[in-house]
Amino acid sequence: MNNETKIKIFLVDDDALHLKSLEMEFEELGNFSIETFATGELCLDNLSHNPDVIVLDYYLDGIDETAMNGLETLDKIKAQNPAIPVIMLSSQDKIEVAVQCMHHKAFDYVVKSETAFLRLQKIITMIIQQNKMEKELTWYMDRM
């Protein structure tokens, strides 16, 4: 599959081991182009690369205690480009945290677990299908 048809995903996590693990799992599938970032600031600096989806960790202060957290990063992503779907990823298995992320316009919330990658894969597939249907509908409506 060439780069033009690959789905561009930004993975943002301060846990280097988890970040590399996610990157490798997505790359094994072959239809994703992956960029990884250890901080929200680095992700924001690269938004011009136009990701299709961003997977963003809830906590991002493991490397730098002064780094923006996931919600601050999410707010800045949405301020720059509200159309980018952002999936929040966290070890926090609390409904309050998930609701808080949704109030900040996250597309979805995934708890880090053994099944997190499969859940991410399903959500991203749904996002891509939704975007494709919206484009087809726009194309159809433009011809009416």
Score class of each variant (00 low, 15 high):
residue 42 L to T: 15
residue 51 P to D: 04
residue 58 Y to N: 05
residue 43 C to W: 11
residue 61 D to G: 11
residue 47 L to V: 06
residue 52 D to S: 03
residue 32 F to S: 04
residue 67 A to L: 07
residue 43 C to K: 10
residue 7 I to G: 07
residue 12 V to I: 11
residue 106 A to V: 01
residue 21 S to F: 10
residue 102 M to F: 02
residue 1 M to P: 05
residue 93 D to I: 05
residue 84 I to G: 00
residue 39 T to M: 15
residue 26 F to S: 03
residue 78 K to W: 03
residue 39 T to N: 11
residue 77 I to P: 02
residue 78 K to Y: 03
residue 44 L to H: 01
residue 22 L to T: 01
residue 39 T to E: 14
residue 23 E to V: 12
residue 96 E to K: 02
residue 91 S to N: 13
residue 124 I to H: 05
residue 95 I to E: 05
residue 103 H to T: 15
residue 86 V to M: 02
residue 107 F to A: 09
residue 13 D to R: 07
residue 39 T to D: 12
residue 122 K to R: 14
residue 82 P to E: 10
residue 58 Y to F: 10
residue 88 M to F: 02
residue 7 I to W: 09
residue 126 M to E: 10
residue 52 D to Y: 04
residue 85 P to R: 13
residue 39 T to P: 06
residue 140 Y to H: 05
residue 140 Y to W: 05
residue 12 V to W: 06
residue 44 L to D: 00
residue 8 K to D: 07
residue 7 I to F: 10
residue 36 T to D: 07
residue 133 M to V: 11
residue 127 I to G: 03
residue 34 I to F: 09
residue 118 L to V: 01
residue 105 K to H: 12
residue 123 I to C: 02
residue 88 M to Q: 00
residue 108 D to F: 06
residue 10 F to K: 02
residue 103 H to M: 14
residue 143 R to T: 06
residue 85 P to M: 12
residue 123 I to K: 04
residue 41 E to T: 14
residue 119 R to L: 05
residue 64 D to A: 13
residue 42 L to K: 15
residue 25 E to P: 02
residue 135 K to F: 12
residue 6 K to D: 07
residue 23 E to W: 11
residue 111 V to R: 05
residue 56 L to N: 01
residue 82 P to W: 10
residue 21 S to W: 06
residue 98 A to H: 03
residue 120 L to D: 06
residue 58 Y to V: 05
residue 105 K to G: 00
residue 41 E to D: 11
residue 104 H to Q: 10
residue 80 Q to L: 13
residue 61 D to V: 11
residue 116 A to E: 01
residue 13 D to Y: 08
residue 29 L to H: 03
residue 124 I to Y: 07
residue 142 D to W: 06
residue 77 I to W: 04
residue 136 E to K: 15
residue 132 K to D: 08
residue 57 D to M: 00
residue 7 I to C: 10
residue 68 M to L: 15
residue 26 F to D: 01
residue 25 E to S: 07
residue 25 E to D: 04
residue 98 A to W: 01
residue 92 Q to T: 09
residue 5 T to A: 13
residue 133 M to L: 15
residue 45 D to I: 15
residue 28 E to N: 10
residue 132 K to G: 08
residue 65 E to P: 00
residue 120 L to R: 09
residue 129 Q to H: 14
residue 47 L to N: 03
residue 66 T to K: 08
residue 27 E to V: 12
residue 104 H to Y: 13
residue 40 G to F: 14
residue 97 V to H: 01
residue 63 I to C: 06
residue 79 A to G: 11
residue 124 I to D: 03
residue 18 H to F: 11
